[in-house]
């Protein structure tokens, strides 16, 4: 009985009372005035109308209006919360420098992982962010101390039975040994990432707090690398900015709205570029106007950024090829642009036409358009532009046109290569 309240059905609020029906006035009267307050009498608008009331009709109308009122409140709340979400999207910038000091030809950013500074190679062509981790079974020599999970209170192990571990398969293409655990689910999720140049990292998947510029994020999933080998120089690890669910971009979607940008600086003068997260238009204040091209969807290549290559020009001469209009990957970690053979042939032919009179040199590896430029101090190079869908142009930086195989300029090659066949 104590858990219930009794409603007298003959005494509910809808029962009209004679006193109200007979009321001649619905104006509120002042009920008195205190020193700091005034009291007004409150009456129900239906009950004081004085007219004969069809209660069934009134009830239906009241419920209808009530519903409209709730919908209105919901719309207002939705509008307010969506504004709040937009406001919570933040921006941050990190200096982006050459990795030459760390003996890598890649670009480096420094972030705080578990409160410790880590120098990471920036890579839009892979997904998992990882660092070399103690205790390490086989690590390359890095500058600075290895990340040590035992001294971090924010380090958390990712277990085999978690969805994060399953997502890793999609991102890396490697299942790790989790599949062979025969139901032993409380084991850590091991990962393996292999790169195109033969470099690799393997270790345990974990989560940790990370600070990107002035933005701190909790529980970032990363790889605690116990066995790492390859061309990473003295960097602490790698920042994966690909598109799968384990990439830094996907994990920070709510904070940065899936937007990041970079400006890669010249390596020679020690200049610093920026890696920026979030859609802060002030980042582009020193840029020319931004031209956009759609990211092409390919369900089989979800990790990659694919653009539609629609044209190219050498020294202002537009090239013709039936192979234009196809997807091309864009990657911050690849230096030599690979083109379908027919497009490469057109590039090579036009470049040689405009860059004539310089002594040629034998090819090197995949590069077959090479020169000996030892007897020249300054050379004039035709401008190369790559054009993407929507007429977005990327003008190749002058230092990216050639690959200096030999530093004395006796072997300098055009930094473009041909794929083996058109649809490779």
């Amino acid at each position: 009985v104590d858990q219930k309240k009794i409603l007298s059905v003959h005494n509910n609020i809808w029962s009209p009372k004679k006193s109200y029906e007979a009321s001649s006035s619905c104006f509120s009267r002042s009920l008195g005035k205190g020193r700091d307050s005034t009291a007004l009498e409150m009456k129900h608008r239906e009950l004081c109308s004085g007219k004969t009331i069809d209660w069934g009709k009134k009830m239906r109308r009241a419920l209808l209006l009530d519903n409209i009122r709730v919908q209105s409140l919901q719309l207002r709340i939705k509008a307010m919360t969506s504004r709040t979400t937009e406001q919570s999207v933040s921006e941050t910038q990190i200096p982006l420098t050459s990795g030459i000091k760390l003996e890598t030809l890649n670009y480096i950013v420094t972030v705080e992982l578990g409160g410790k500074n880590m120098s990471l190679i920036v890579d839009t062509g892979s997904d998992l962010t990882w660092v070399q981790c103690q205790p390490c079974r086989s690590c390359y020599n890095q500058q600075g101390p290895l990340y040590d999970p035992s001294v971090s209170s924010s380090y958390k192990t990712v277990f085999c039975n978690s969805s994060t571990c399953q997502d890793l398969v999609a991102a890396t293409g490697n299942s790790g040994p989790c599949g062979g655990n025969n139901g032993v689910v409380k084991t850590s999720c091991e990962y393996v990432v292999s790169y195109g140049d033969g470099s690799y990292t393997r270790g345990d998947l974990a989560s940790e707090s990370i600070k990107l510029g002035d933005t701190k994020l909790e529980n970032l999933v990363f790889g605690c690398g116990r066995n790492n080998k390859g061309l990473f120089g003295g960097a602490s690890g790698l920042m994966g900015l690909g598109r799968s669910s384990v990439s830094l971009v996907s994990q920070t979607l709510k904070t940065f709205n899936g937007v990041f940008s970079y400006c890669l600086p010249s390596l020679e003068d020690g200049a610093s570029g920026t890696l920026s997260f979030g859609n802060d238009s002030s980042v582009y204040k020193n840029s020319t106007s931004v031209s956009y091209t759609p990211l092409v969807q390919n369900p089989q290549l979800r990790s990659f950024y694919i653009l539609n290559l629609t044209g190219a020009s050498i020294g202002g001469v537009e090239l013709k090829s039936s192979s234009f209009g196809r997807g091309i990957l864009i990657d911050s970690g690849t230096v030599i642009t690979r083109l379908p053979p027919s497009i490469y042939k057109a590039v090579k032919t036009e470049f040689l036409k405009q860059f004539s009179g310089f002594p040629s040199a034998p090819g090197y590896s995949i590069l077959d358009t090479c020169f000996n430029l030892t007897s020249y101090e300054d050379i004039s190079i035709p401008t190369i532009k790559i054009i993407f869908e929507g007429n977005a142009e990327l003008e190749i930086d002058v230092t990216g046109v050639f690959y200096f195989v030999k530093p004395d300029a006796s072997l300098v090659c055009l930094a473009f290569a041909s794929l083996s066949y058109e649809n490779e």
Partner: peptide, 30 residues
């Protein structure tokens, strides 16, 4: 040739917008 930074994209602001499924390019002296 290992994992080397892409010199060809130097001094460009390259904007990856995964929400709007687009990539922006602008010249910028870094």
């Amino acid at each position: 040739v290992g994992i080397i930074g892409n010199y060809q994209q130097k001094n460009q602001r390259v904007i990856y917008d995964t929400t709007q499924e687009r990539l922006g390019i602008a010249g910028e002296n870094c």
